[in-house]
Amino acid sequence: MPKLKTAIVDDHPIVIEGLKSLLSNETNLKIVGGFYSGEALLSYLDSHALDLILLDITLPDMNGIELCQKIKAVSLTTCILILSNHTERSIIMQAIQNGASGYLLKNSSIEELRHCIIEAVNGQICYSREVMEIISRPSKNELLGSPRLTRREKEILALIAAGKTSQVIGQELFLSPLTVDTHRKNLIQKFGVKNVAELIMVAVQQQIL
Score class of each variant (00 low, 15 high):
N186R: 15
L175F: 08
A158G: 13
S139H: 02
E153G: 06
V9C: 09
I92C: 01
R184A: 02
G18Q: 05
D10W: 01
L29Q: 08
C126D: 10
L104M: 09
V196P: 02
I8H: 00
G33Y: 01
N122F: 01
L209G: 01
E119P: 04
Y44T: 07
K190F: 00
I8E: 03
S21I: 15
D181K: 12
T87N: 13
G145P: 09
M1L: 09
K3F: 03
K194H: 13
A197D: 14
N25M: 12
R152M: 06
V196C: 03
L178R: 10
M132L: 13
L67M: 01
R129D: 12
G192N: 13
R137F: 09
V15E: 07
A161H: 15
I188E: 04
P13Y: 00
S24N: 13
R137K: 15
T27Y: 09
G145Y: 09
Y127R: 04
I65Q: 01
D61S: 00
S166H: 09
T150W: 05
L104T: 09
T182N: 11
K3C: 03
V180M: 03
V74K: 15
G102W: 01
L4M: 11
I117R: 00
I71G: 01
S21F: 06
P147W: 01
I110M: 08
L143K: 15
M93S: 12
I91A: 11
I92Y: 03
C116R: 05
E155L: 04
P177D: 00
D51E: 11
I135P: 12
S128P: 11
V121R: 12
V202Y: 08
E153A: 05
T6E: 10
A95K: 00
L159H: 12
M132T: 14
L173S: 02
Q97G: 04
A49M: 05
I65K: 06
L175S: 06
K194L: 11
E17Q: 14
G102A: 03
N141D: 13
A158W: 11
N141P: 05
A49G: 08
K190D: 06
H12A: 08
E142D: 13
A203H: 07
L4N: 13
V196W: 02
R129A: 10
E198R: 04
M93L: 13
H115Q: 14
I188V: 14
G99N: 03
E88C: 02
I31T: 11
L149M: 04
I200V: 15
A158H: 15
I31P: 13
I80T: 08
I118N: 14
E17S: 12
I91T: 15
T165I: 01
G34K: 00
V180L: 05
L52E: 08
F191K: 03
Q124M: 02
I82S: 07
L143S: 09
L42I: 07
E88P: 04
Q205S: 08
K164R: 14
Q205K: 15
L23P: 09
